[in-house]
């Protein structure tokens, strides 16, 4: 037979569970307040901060104008070995998925690099995705760059889906993420 102490434990447990249910009820939120889509900051689940940078032909490229595509923003420098290693990998994936709405923006941290080296590297490796120059370091600051390379995967809705610090990224990693994001946000 169960002793009185166990009975008390059962009653106490029931009270704890009931309080838990009330707490869950009071913790409800509407989806709008829990999603972070109204704030632009470089973190998963938030809107990718907008920027405008010049490309090789000195035309301005504005990130927000490409919303609706799956975007890979790669912050890199020509002297950074892992950055150099992953560029051809990104090119192969870009080649395979660009017609499905996949774009790569190679944002060169030009304040720590120089344009001619970046352009030479692009030409040598036949890289065809847009090369953008962050001459002032503003975009690096905006994206809180801590290490090179850093890669942001941005969904069609403009929300950051994933961030990869360091490199080189494997081809399988880029492919799986891009395939998933193309599927998730048609």
């Amino acid at each position: 037979m169960r002793n009185i102490s166990d009975k008390n434990k059962t009653i106490l447990s029931a009270i704890v569970l009931l309080v838990g249910l009330i707490w869950i009820w009071t913790s409800r939120v509407d989806a709008q307040s829990i999603t972070q889509d109204h704030i632009a900051t470089p973190q998963i689940g938030f809107v990718a901060p907008d920027f405008s940078l010049k490309n090789q032909t000195d035309e301005s490229v504005v990130l927000s104008e490409f919303m609706g595509n799956v975007i890979l923003i790669n912050l890199w420098a020509s002297w950074c070995l892992p950055c150099r290693k992953e560029m051809p990998i990104m090119q192969r994936v870009y080649q395979d998925y660009k017609d499905k709405g996949f774009i790569v923006f190679a944002v060169n941290v030009t304040n720590q690099d120089n344009r001619s080296d970046a352009i030479a590297f692009f030409e040598k490796n036949n890289l065809s995705f847009p090369l953008l120059f962050d001459d002032t370091g503003d975009v690096s600051n905006l994206y809180r760059l801590h290490s090179l390379p850093t890669t942001f995967f941005v969904g069609r809705d403009g929300i950051i889906d994933d961030i990869v610090y360091g490199g080189p990224m494997s081809e399988a990693l880029i492919r799986t993420k891009v395939e998933q994001m193309l599927k998730d946000t048609p």
Binding site: D162, V164, M169, S170, E171, A172, L173, R175, T176, K177, E179
Partner: peptide, 20 residues
């Protein structure tokens, strides 16, 4: 779950990338 992505570069199975 992602055989297609690894079929192109099977050695990526041994990648040190923790995202995989």
């Amino acid at each position: 779950n992602n055989l297609g992505a690894f079929a192109i570069k099977p050695l990526n199975i041994f990648s040190l990338n923790l995202d995989l």
